[in-house]
Write a protein that binds this DNA or RNA. Structure first.
Lengths: 240, 240
DNA sequence: CCGTTAGTGCGCACACTGTACGCATGAAGG
DNA sequence: CCTTCATGCGTACAGTGTGCGCACTAACGG
């Protein structure tokens, strides 16, 4: 600040970016900033600066910081792909959707804690609608399809968010994933008596590619959830 | 402040509370404050005031606000009950645990966004250990038990957190749950063409006790997850 | 008894936050 | 040309987390 009290009058605002800000521009810039620096580095002033604008200018286009976040969250929901299902073969479509949601969350790690804030943005609605279509193809009625979608998305979101939290911890620890695993293992080893089961699991994971382990864990749970839904879909299709 | 420059010298510190603060006291007070006023109302100053202390005094016992939250989160994890499993009958124990986790999250709605921060507090470890014991009783080996636990807890946490987010939205809207549902329904109705599946679900839910609906939704997904795990446990018990 | 040491509480200060308010500017339309 | 209106932004306010250094108190060795 106080860089130049008055750079005369000309070239006041050479062109800046665009004559005016747009809500869309703001949301896009916020998304960039979030992806680059994370949630607690997003401030209205920084966001304004990135757009060549003052902090309070943003409030002409966005009521709140909270509302801004709502908008951004809806945008990232828009990245989720739900394939159209053909015939009764719903399971591949469900799997693809689940993986797409997980990928979205891992791409935007800051989103976990605020996923609930999405409310009912258009992209969330579109995602729900398409997902429901998939499950109705599976044979569920409207009510049960809603429950099934809820179950599946809850699992996916729950595990993906916990993955990002784990990865954040790794990053905070400042070391690579493998190295941290060793540290953790030692911490567990010291308390083998107290936590034998945890230790057994840890020992078995040792020397395995952590990313691969995470992928497999995700898939394992997803298959169990889909198994449960498939079983139910089968009984539901034969009367009752 | 500036209430009394010098109330003489006596009764300087009549008794205050205790001679000194304790980490445990601080954590307990933070939990109270969080339950009463929610996450974004928790400030070090307010917390200090509640303990008859200054804000910065807390830093003698707690490194960070983040660390404080970690401690509180571990405390609420301690509220989860995992029944001991007798014999091979693991499913009731798993159900009870799942309901206990959900109840804990609904009791402390602020916990959702920071659940990942728990790291590896003692209560989290105890919960994991007991849960693993349950699943090993089901016939899983160490690795698969870990995956199964992850799947189940991810589902439970995912759905419970989304429930709290929904309830927060209801509260923000300032009306009762029923009334908001009607508003939402109208919003959907206006876009029937765009979202027929969502609308069908909404229409079916109409005039039903919302709390009961939430309870049933939770149970539905839980049963599907457990079905999937049970099926897998059955195959795993007969020689892989 | 005194002197030293260690632990604790806390006032102050700093950099930073979200955002309300009101003025300035510039385009649109009569 | 004058009015109206949307938009940008400087200023300000209340509040945040937390580093620093002083004050005090209790323990303990001499």
């Amino acid at each position: 600040m106080t860089e130049e009290p008055l750079p005369s009058v000309w070239a006041r605002r050479p062109k800046e970016q665009q004559p005016g800000l747009t809500t869309e521009q703001i949301v896009r810039a916020a998304l960039e900033l979030l992806d680059e620096e994370g949630m607690e580095q997003l401030s209205m002033r920084k966001l304004g600066a990135r757009l060549g604008a003052g902090a309070t200018s943003l409030y002409r286009h966005v009521k709140n910081k909270d509302e801004l976040i709502e908008l951004v969250v809806d945008v990232v929901y828009g990245e989720v792909e739900v394939p159209d299902v053909v015939g009764r073969d719903w399971r591949p479509a469900a799997e693809k959707t689940a993986h797409s949601v997980r990928a979205m969350i891992l791409r935007h790690p800051w989103v976990g804690p605020v996923l609930g804030q999405a409310g009912l943005g258009p992209n969330v609605m579109r995602l729900s609608e398409k997902m429901l279509r998939v499950l109705i193809a599976a044979g569920f009625d409207a009510v049960e399809a809603d429950q099934a979608m809820n179950a599946m998305l809850s699992y996916v979101i729950g595990i993906a968010v916990s993955e990002t939290a784990y990865l954040a911890m790794v990053k905070r620890s400042g070391s690579v994933e493998k190295h941290l695993a060793v540290l953790l293992q030692h911490a567990i080893w010291e308390r083998t008596g107290e936590f034998p089961m945890i230790r057994a699991g840890f020992d078995a994971m040792k020397d395995r590619n952590p990313k691969k382990v995470r992928d497999e864990n995700f898939d394992y749970g997803l298959q169990r959830v889909l198994d449960g839904l498939a079983a139910r879909a089968a009984t539901v299709r034969f009367g009752q």
